[in-house]
């Protein structure tokens, strides 16, 4: 179970490309060729995972970008991290 102290980073098997400043991104899983699309919130989250980062730190950073209550953002990012982990796009550190 992922929680705020869980440290995660982008998988070496994944790469993503944004579509411009403040735009969504496409994510490619290199070993399988699976392709994903995501919105700006997910892209900003991925930007923070170039280096290992705790989920709590990611929440702190994204609160500076988005107008959202902390509890809501943390809940959404825990759910998102679970999806990314299940898809093999991020890894636990």
């Amino acid at each position: 179970m992922i929680h705020s102290d869980t440290v995660i980073s982008l998988s070496q098997d994944a790469t993503y490309q944004d579509m411009g400043d403040n735009e969504p991104a496409v994510i490619l899983q290199l070993s399988t060729g699976r392709l994903f699309t995501c919105n700006l919130t997910t892209r900003c989250f991925l930007d923070l995972l170039a280096d290992p980062c705790s989920l709590g730190d990611a929440v702190d950073q994204l609160l500076k970008t988005f107008d959202v209550p902390r509890e809501k953002l943390e809940r959404d990012l825990i759910k998102l991290a679970g999806q990314l982990l299940a898809a093999g796009l991020i890894q636990l550190n």
């Binding site: 403040n22 392709l35 994903f36 919105n39 989250f45 107008d67 759910k79």
Partner: peptide, 14 residues
């Protein structure tokens, strides 16, 4: 200055 928040999405494409 903050941006309008949207719930994060992740969709697999064909």
């Amino acid at each position: 200055t903050t941006q309008e928040y949207q719930e994060p999405t992740l969709e697999e494409q064909e």
